[in-house]
Nucleic acid binder design. Structure first.
Lengths: 330, 330
DNA sequence: CTGTTAGCGCATTCAA
DNA sequence: TTGAATGCGCTAACAG
């Protein structure tokens, strides 16, 4: 059995309260300090966070809700979230909902039942009703939900697309295809809007047949790229809007012998490691994944410490890494 | 504030003990049952797992330790682990150690300090010393550590390689390259051994220059494949031994216009989705990821319920999915 | 600076 | 069946 404060107390002859105070950072007579340290080491005493939690009504654990544990974008962020929280003494319970609407609710309530002190979620179908009236702070990533008092960490998706498409336009491209995500997903809608904005701003007629909607997985990136390759009037550039679809798209182009950038220019999304591997390296929109994770974790911690802080929506900038996958079109 | 047993008790006029018993499944007078149900609903009472944990000395949470949250193989398994544990009422604290030896120990002790009821780990550098003498059950995945009383879930890595290479040999290949993992990693050693075994068994001379050691990431798969492509005497087949390196390898082959399977035959590893995307579909060794996760979780739960069970080592079979990426060599 | 005491929410005796 | 009482390990007054 693990040693308790009581054990340390009786070993040292001091009282439980004194040990507790010392362990929690209050000042103590030097002499006692040493006695306690010795006893702690000898008994291998560890603080019992359960008991502590019962007393303080805090579990020192945070729940995290993500679409899928195989989603590299999400897990990268979670990795930073976990580190940041751990440095503040929190542990992290990660739940994934496998892109399933019912599971999303179910796992949320699982976390809620677990006395977590806060939640960080990358929601897909959660609505106001699911989140209103909760007693603990919640930070949302990647999507804002109106009418609910949750902090948010977003990236400027519209601007991301805008800058990618603008870059292509400035290189002389006018026939630009976009492989976007599902129409009912917030990020996908925003990314499509940015694409349209750029075309409008540069007075390039919008060609609906250049707008493709995948479902953010590798296969759909592959399939839609095949469709693009086989188009009557093939665009001179493709802009792909997430990690997995970028891989699928490159595979398709490679397989068909469509050369990047001579036959087609290419801008991908998110997959920075992958972009470095291909030749030529891919131009790519990168999201500040580390910053997203750290920011979300910090927002949550602050909100826990001071629940009255105003709702904050942090919008982070993406950046466009320009590499050799885009050619000049005359 | 959340309602407690006490609140339900005073609302119903019954005692705390009775409510507790009912909530935990003991039989109760029908009449009271209804009263309690009503009160629970009205007060939105939820069991407090912290208090319960203090009493029972169980936290109902399991710690999970993985190399990296971006490792798709690991996270897929964890996804199944999490589901399985949740169905038994456990929550899951996932920690990743970013492939760092110090962090690996550090996060392990973080979990140990957290009153988890058990741990599931995918270890890299943990040794007997780190695991000996722990008071809670531990299940290891992917690697066995001698002299320690931990259950293990492994796959037969040697056999996996053997069957891949044997298949190539039966197709007439004799010059077969392997892209294996780091020499100090258990799975990589086993996979290399299986490769060698197959050659030996079929009396094919071992060519050391066909054995490559990457570090299990996309970039090294790409680089080593480039090396292979540029070899004086290029092998007629490549066998790549993990998920990420398989992607890197295919990218390299595609970029150099090396046709699969006409110019080179190819067998990959793990990446079943990716294998379906490429044309031709890749032949691939697949590990039973779902089964690994479920098995590990079940082993742990059983061990928690009955700590005296003998140490068990479960070795699961991989399978070889045969697709068009391997050609017959005369 | 230290010790005494009460109580966090629950499960579990033991009586009734 | 039900209830009163006790304690899990810890923190937070308060008193010394």
């Amino acid at each position: 059995m693990a040693a308790t404060l009581k054990d340390v107390a009786s070993k040292t002859g001091l009282s439980i309260a004194t040990i507790s105070k010392y362990v929690n950072g209050q000042t103590i007579k030097q002499e006692n300090k040493e006695k306690i340290d010795a006893a702690i080491k000898e008994l291998n005493f560890k603080i019992n966070y359960i008991a502590k939690g019962l007393k303080s009504n805090k579990s020192m654990t945070i729940g995290v809700l993500i679409p899928e544990l195989e989603n590299v974008f999400a897990t990268h962020i979670m990795s930073r979230v976990e580190d940041t929280l751990m440095n503040s003494g929190y542990s992290t319970i990660i739940c994934d909902y496998k892109n399933d609407t019912d599971l999303e609710r179910q796992k949320l309530s699982f976390l809620l039942n677990r006395q977590v002190d806060g939640i960080i979620a990358v929601p897909t179908h959660l609505s106001k009703d699911d989140l209103a009236g909760l007693e603990i702070p919640i930070v949302l990533i990647d999507r804002i939900i109106d009418g609910v008092n949750c902090d948010c960490v977003l990236v400027d998706n519209k601007d991301a697309s805008f800058s990618a498409v603008e870059y292509l336009i400035n290189k002389g491209h006018r026939d630009i295809a976009i492989i976007s995500g599902p129409k009912d997903v917030y990020t996908a809608r925003e990314r499509t809007l940015g694409y349209i904005d750029a075309l409008v701003q540069y007075s390039i007629p919008l060609n609906e047949s250049y707008i493709f909607h995948g479902n953010y997985d590798t296969q759909s990136g592959y399939n839609l790229t095949m469709d693009i390759i086989n188009m009557q009037k093939r665009p001179s550039a493709i802009y792909v809007t997430n990690n997995e679809m970028t891989i699928g798209s490159v595979i398709a182009l490679n397989e068909c012998g469509v050369d990047i950038p001579n036959d087609i220019s290419f801008i991908g999304f998110d997959n920075i490691d992958f972009a470095k591997v291909t030749k030529p390296n891919l131009s790519i929109i990168v999201q500040p994944r580390d910053e997203i994770g750290v920011t979300a974790a910090n927002l949550l911690i602050e909100k826990i410490h001071d629940p009255d802080t105003e709702k904050r929506v942090i919008k982070l900038k993406t950046s466009l890494i320009k590499q050799a996958s885009v050619s000049i079109r005359k």
